[in-house]
């Protein structure tokens, strides 16, 4: 017996077994459909079909916990809500109040510099932007609302995702712990966290921002982690050999060299955020998504298609800008491509 408890793995397995037994016991005692006395269990007819009392009360637990969370810590969520909403409204109003030609011009200028002064990309992006409003006048404002939600989500993703990615690249232990969490975030259906989002933050843009964040942050974290780990080992050794501290190594060598990958992550983040827009419209978020939803509800194929195309155009604009910025960065760090041109 003493031998058995010497190994950490055995102790862990034993604890898990005890935990499982405890879960069974709790489920049985808290179940309302358990047999009147324990003796009935000896008939074993419950082996035929899944017995009603063998039911983990996870639902009740989560609901209770959620209720307590809402009652006791509601002010935290309210603060987050107010903060995000204020940011969103400021950004949205700024873009909506500005004359639309100016906004298009702004997008074109950003595209021009982000793409490293490529005329082709710039003109293409300009036309795409124009066509969003051109499809339907109301789309212009809706697109701006969508963009505002996305920009805020991406901002959140960046300030949270990049540091987490850096942590993962630094420590294998943290990476092992976080990878399943990222998998969970990417696979769990969006509605599962949209609904608690509504209960905590109310209907509207803020739960959409939170949902978008949960859905879009994993690729950024992964690509930041990957980007940093892919930096040439000898370059890192060189930084070490010349006495760079951890901070100097990170800011001076690892992050700049991982930047093309990180930009790719932001690009992926943007695309995933956009796909969340339609889903988020179901919880009353205003934007291009609710036009698609409206088209569906009215069985108006043309309307849904128009709105769908507008979303694709918005995606193209955002993709071209973030993507070409990443490409520009990559060219700088590997100028061999330039030579051959």
């Amino acid at each position: 017996m003493k031998e058995f408890f010497k190994s950490k793995k055995n102790i862990f397995n034993f604890v898990m077994l005890v935990f499982f037994g405890w879960l069974l016991f709790i489920s049985y005692t808290s179940s309302k459909r358990k047999p009147d006395n324990v003796g009935e269990l000896l008939k074993f007819d419950w082996l035929q079909s899944w017995p009603k009392w063998l039911d983990l009360p996870l639902m009740a637990w989560i609901n209770d916990a959620f209720k307590k969370l809402n009652e006791n810590y509601g002010w935290i969520f309210e603060a987050i809500n107010n903060f995000l909403l204020a940011m969103l409204v400021a950004l949205k109003n700024f873009l909506i109040l500005a004359p639309w030609p100016l906004v298009i011009l702004g997008v074109v200028v950003i595209a021009y510099f982000a793409s490293g002064r490529k005329i082709g990309t710039t003109v293409f992006v300009g036309f795409c932007t124009f066509f969003i409003g051109f499809l339907h006048p109301i789309f212009w404002q809706k697109a701006i609302e969508t963009t505002a939600i996305m920009l805020i989500s991406i901002f959140l993703c960046t300030i949270v995702g990049i540091p987490i990615g850096i942590l993962m690249a630094r420590s294998i232990r943290i990476r092992d712990k976080l990878l399943p969490v990222l998998d969970l975030m990417q696979t769990i259906p969006a509605f599962v966290y949209l609904i608690p989002g509504i209960m905590l933050f109310g209907l509207g843009a803020v739960p959409a921002i939170i949902a978008t964040f949960i859905y879009a942050v994993p690729p950024l974290v992964r690509l930041t982690d990957l980007g940093i780990r892919l930096v040439d080992k000898e370059v890192i050794e060189a930084a070490d050999a010349f006495g760079a501290s951890k901070k100097q190594k990170l800011l001076g060598v690892q992050l700049p060299l991982a930047l093309p990958n990180i930009m790719q992550g932001i690009n992926q983040c943007t695309m995933m955020a956009l796909s969340m827009v339609v889903i988020a419209s179901m919880i009353g978020t205003r934007g291009l998504g609710d036009e698609v939803l409206l088209g569906l509800q009215q069985l108006n194929v043309g309307k849904a298609a128009e709105a769908g195309i507008a979303i694709v155009l918005l995606a193209i604009v955002l993709d071209r800008i973030t993507q070409s910025y990443g490409e520009t960065l990559q060219e700088r760090s590997t100028p061999q491509n330039k030579k051959s041109k």
């Binding site: 000898e234 010349f242 060299l257």
Partner: peptide, 13 residues
Amino acid sequence: MSMVFQRFGLFPH
């Protein structure tokens, strides 16, 4: 100490 590397170990950026 300073060091020179086989594949140079230069900072490409």
